[in-house]
Design a protein around this nucleic acid. Structure first.
Length: 492
DNA sequence: GTAATACTGGTCGACCGACT
DNA sequence: AGTCGGTCGACCAGTATTAC
């Protein structure tokens, strides 16, 4: 049965003529071929609703939900039906709406009512399937296409007025520091017979603005002693400390940082937060809601080759690491000082104060093409000269080739010497350190150490090694082109 | 994922009384 | 008799819920 409550044009026209008194209901019905009683009904009942039982949310409320889902989709937040239903129920309770059962049935009909949302869900499903079925690394490659997508996304932000005020452009990044565990704790681990790690990894979240200022960094530490936490926390205000069981960034700590450190210091109504994380599971609906509430748009960098497109990754975090390493070296000469988990925040604060943050940060935002926005800078990142990605071999063939073609030890040695040459001659790295870097690379190649372990010691260089290992295997020339393409420059 | 059921509310032809 | 606005009730589409 035809429905007129959707607001079709001839129907509205007929109704207008009746209301204006130009036509009677009967004559209008005859003229427009519309049932007379329907016209009459609409004339006497201006607010006729659509067919069917009303939806639990008003059309306006549904629009808000649609917006939220589309935003989530834009930012590649997992569109999980259950989690979303819970978030909706919370929002409903907050607004005093009684109905909170946004279950499977509601979800299904909601998608039926909003095909544009259904399309996003299908898309997300397809991407999940694709990622599962194919190499996830391939999706993270920085290609000409992804660069254009990135530029288009930034252009959209700029059009919306988000990339105008440097005080509203933020970049949050994480960097890891190794802390040797104290002798007492080592003894305890030995006592229990556990093969514990000999070092703790402390993740530091730093957030810089395009105007050259910083929010205070957040230390994520595996602390189960709350008194310890409070004593450290009270000792200084330059850094914040959050408990994190894993010691790495997760959804809870990220949310904590945004809520406690970023939101209270916001200066603009339109903010963009650039952030990178290895996995997308740190982005939650809860975080999204917080950001929507405070006018924060989030730009997620996928894991992988992000050092060049992320302002903090470009100069700042490297300098941070380098200064920290220098500091640790001087610390070793001081018998009264010890680097432990307890003293780490204090030492880190000392290093933090030394960072020439403003210069590096401003340069970081400029050289990543974010502020001022410059697509040409971003396009320049694309490694045209780089011959990867390689032809994807079937898994079985790859395994076979690995077995048969052993690494030629002579060729490898030559390659490593060449790398060392480049490090010292072209990149100005001290002979000693270059040797250390190459040694680390050798350890990785010979599976004596992991990329992560070596990488943590040598900062930005780990990225180089990761890529070298993944894409280049033992082909030295690719390392060379990688270096040229990414313009790796020694900064400290 | 689908089918069945309950519920809501618009649609529209049949009919009615008032008016000219 | 013709025209009009109005009412009634069967019908049907759309939604919510439950069961499988």
């Amino acid at each position: 049965m035809a429905s007129y409550s959707g607001g079709e044009l001839p129907f509205e026209e007929a109704l207008d003529e009746i209301r204006a008194g130009r036509l009677s209901v009967r004559s209008a019905a005859a003229k427009y071929n519309i049932p007379r009683t329907t016209l009459l009904n609409h004339k006497n009942n201006p607010d006729v609703r659509k067919n069917g039982r009303p939806t639990v949310l008003t059309p306006a409320e549904e629009e808000i939900v649609v917006e939220l889902i589309l935003t989530c989709s834009e930012f590649k937040i997992e569109l999980d039906q259950t989690a979303f239903g819970e978030a909706l129920a919370d929002a409903a309770r907050e607004r005093g709406i009684e109905y909170t059962h946004f279950g499977r049935g509601w979800h299904r009909l909601f998608l039926k009512r909003h095909p544009e949302v259904a399309a996003r869900f299908d898309q997300a499903k397809a991407i999940r399937k694709y990622v599962k079925g194919s190499s996830a690394k391939k999706l993270k490659e920085w290609t000409a296409e992804s660069a254009e997508m990135y530029i288009g996304m930034l252009q959209g932000l700029k059009d919306d007025g988000f990339l105008e005020d440097p005080r509203g452009i933020m970049n949050l990044g994480e960097t890891n520091f190794e802390v040797e565990i104290s002798a007492r704790r080592a003894a305890r681990i030995a006592q229990t017979g556990g093969e514990g790690p000999d070092k703790d990894i402390v993740t530091v979240l730093a957030c810089g603005l395009a105007d050259g200022t910083f929010f205070r960094p957040l230390l994520l530490m595996d602390i189960n002693n709350t008194t310890l936490l409070s004593s450290m926390n009270g000792s200084n205000d330059d850094v914040a400390i959050a408990k994190s069981a894993t010691g790495v960034m997760d959804s809870g700590s990220l949310l904590h940082y945004i809520r406690e450190e970023i939101v209270p210091s916001l200066q603009c109504t339109k903010n963009v937060l650039f952030l990178a994380a290895k996995t997308s599971d740190v982005y939650t609906v809860e975080m999204m809601q917080l950001c929507v509430k405070y006018g924060i748009r989030i730009v997620c960098y996928p894991g992988g080759q992000i050092s060049k497109i992320q302002p903090l990754g470009l100069y700042m975090l490297d300098e941070f690491q380098a200064l920290f390493n220098d500091y640790i070296r001087t610390l070793a000469w001081n018998p009264d000082e010890e680097l432990s988990r307890l003293t780490f925040p204090r030492h880190l604060t000392m290093v933090w104060r030394q960072i020439s943050a403003q210069t590096n940060l401003l340069a970081g935002f400029r050289d990543t093409g974010i502020f001022p926005f410059d697509p040409q800078v971003i396009r320049a990142f694309v490694p045209n000269a780089l011959p990867f990605p390689p032809i994807v071999q079937p898994a079985s063939a790859k395994a076979a080739s690995k077995k048969n073609t052993r690494v030629d030890p002579v060729a490898q040695a030559v390659s490593l010497v060449k790398i060392e040459d480049i490090l010292t001659a072209d990149m100005g790295i001290a002979q000693e350190e270059a040797h250390f870097l190459v040694d680390g690379l050798l350890q990785i190649l010979n599976r004596r150490s992991t990329v992560k372990r070596v990488g943590a010691k040598i900062g930005y260089f780990s990225l180089c090694i990761c890529t070298y290992q993944v894409y280049c295997e033992t082909t030295f020339d690719l390392f060379l082109s990688f270096r040229v393409a990414f313009g790796i420059v020694r900064l400290f």
